[in-house]
Design a protein around this nucleic acid. Structure first.
Lengths: 199, 199, 199, 199
DNA sequence: CATGAATGAGCATTCATTCAT
DNA sequence: AATGAATGAATGCTCATTCAT
């Protein structure tokens, strides 16, 4: 309950071991079976805690999942922001693409959740996820703008969507077992489409 | 309604009116709230039939949804196959992109379902959906091959994924209310990335 | 609907092929899974007729089963009545025992139904089955009375129950796969208990 | 209700009050209407617990009934084992007969269930019930063997079935309202048939 | 902090019955 | 005489949530 300054993490004293275990377990399970088909029982069992602990720590299943989303998004934004500030705009774009592929590799469960629930009009997290999408697109847009105008007259707002989609699906594809495609090849294909945009 | 001799039914005997009504209702509802959150009661009510009719016609909720997937995929493949056979390979690609955007506009619910459940390891339709993905990628690959080799050395198999993702996300974006972007702009952005691939 | 005299069977003109097929199918299925777990669908399918035919012929599932019971009981009574009229009382008893074992061999499904539902206070056929039991016990009592009084003072009404139970369970046992016990051995054991009664 | 230190629970931790209440309620209802016609709602209501408690405690309706069977059988076997160890073999048999009649008086619901489901090839408890029958027959066989050989050459395995059936049906008969027959008369009739076996 | 027995609203599914043909 | 599509009440089961400890 104290509000004294904390140096490292914004996390509250509530970040107990149980909380962390539940987070990890929930992320894995949601990624495998989806948010509706996981049960609180399964999450608690996978985390090795009692079911009541989920409610003590998160209040509800939906809030637990909201926590997953918040955390995933904060990681993603942080990872994108760093390369975005590179002096060379082309390097910035490439850095963002690489970071996105890395992120999807590690946070695939978050990504699945994002792209499933974002389209649903009645999802408990729909609005939050659509807002996240807008912010990410805006960030991409800014980086594209630094490249200068497309010679073909394609608007950055439009191409941002295209680039985002290409990167997202390319990154998720790696999770379907297509390991034989090296990351470098994926990056090369994505950089090629950026050149296509500029040409 | 006439009772004059009929030599054949206009549709298969199983394709009764109830069946068709359920199909439409289910597609809409699944697109809005996802397969897990729709109830059979809601589907039946929306179709204007009794709940038992769902089970008489489809056997289970999962089988009804499987029917939706089968039907959606068969439409999509048919729509892609037509432009794919255009003599000019660049026109073929552009035709396929246009058809995909059109298809996503009309069958968005199918697409949401596809890209939600495809990644789940435990989905009742997961394997079916992943197989569909493989077939679509193969079709794109063939069309890319007709364009000749990429000057940058990008493999068609890799770029097929990228192009597919870009087109899918670009098409779905239109369903989030971004109507101010004309379809022509979206096509232009997608064709640009194809040129990037070739360059 | 005609009421003209019929020479052979008491069966009405309603005894169509469908009716007979349903009877046989229902008897077998009820014997295997019990009256509550068989469905009208299964019975109709096993009989090779449509479900509606069951209702056309019998009016309801319960009435179909009532028909099974009526028929089974009428056969059983007829088969018991014949040996019961033998001049020698001991031969009469032995004949009844043999006929009962034969009957149980062929009409085991009827017997299972009888001894399951007879004890249930809410069975649709409970009262009918309990009445059948009373009649059978009365018949056994009469035959026992012809043997003269038990030297041990056991009342025929009491022993009738015992003898009936012994014969019933002994006969049903043969249906559990204990074929290695010859029928003669079973008859011998049952006749022994009759001697025990008299001694 | 005291919170003083308790060194052990009087019952296993799983044997909560709810569990016991459900057991009793289920036994009564199953005996009256049979396992298929009782609903979980009725059982829960009769036990004064919520429906979910049935599933929390037993997992399914079938498992609840399996619990009933296990418990009933364990009581029956214990009650039979005691008299079976009497030094005099004839007293042992008579004691077993008396105990069986007592048991059937109190556990009639269990007995009805046993003898309904035992014969069904598709019962969820069929194999368990048939195994119980084998064990009981083996126990009777052992006691018969101690009497010495039957002078009429009847095998103990065959007579065990006969004796078991006679006792079972005689005991159940009392539950049909034939209270005018004293238990002593029933025992006398059953002991008479044992003498018939020996003679 | 944490637990787990208990809850009950909600849901998928079954199945006897009806009825238009 | 027979059919089978359609029905909807009934039922077994799930699972997020509560709460006493």
């Amino acid at each position: 309950m104290s509000t004294t300054a904390r140096h490292r993490h914004a996390t509250s004293p509530r970040t107990t071991a149980s909380r962390a275990r539940l987070f990890t377990a929930a992320m894995d399970l949601v990624g495998d079976v989806g948010p509706d088909k996981v049960t609180v029982d399964e999450i608690a069992a996978a985390a090795g805690v009692a079911k009541g602990t989920v409610y003590y720590q998160f209040g509800s299943k939906n809030e637990l999942i909201r926590g997953l989303i918040d955390h995933g998004y904060s990681v993603m934004r942080d990872e994108l922001l760093e390369p975005a500030s590179a002096p060379d705009p082309m390097e910035a774009i490439e850095g963002m693409i690489r970071e996105t592929l890395d992120f999807l590799d590690e946070y695939g469960s978050f990504a699945k959740l994002w792209h499933s629930e974002m389209w649903l009009v009645e999802s408990p997290w729909g609005e939050q996820l659509r807002q996240m999408r807008r912010e990410i697109l805006a960030l991409i847009c800014q980086s594209l703008a630094r490249l200068g105008a497309s010679r073909s007259g394609i608007r950055p707002e439009v191409f941002a969507i295209t680039l985002f989609g290409a990167t997202y699906i390319t990154g998720m594809d790696a999770k379907l077992g297509n390991d034989e495609i090296p990351t470098e090849d994926r990056v090369a294909a994505l950089m090629a489409i950026v050149r296509g945009y500029l040409s």
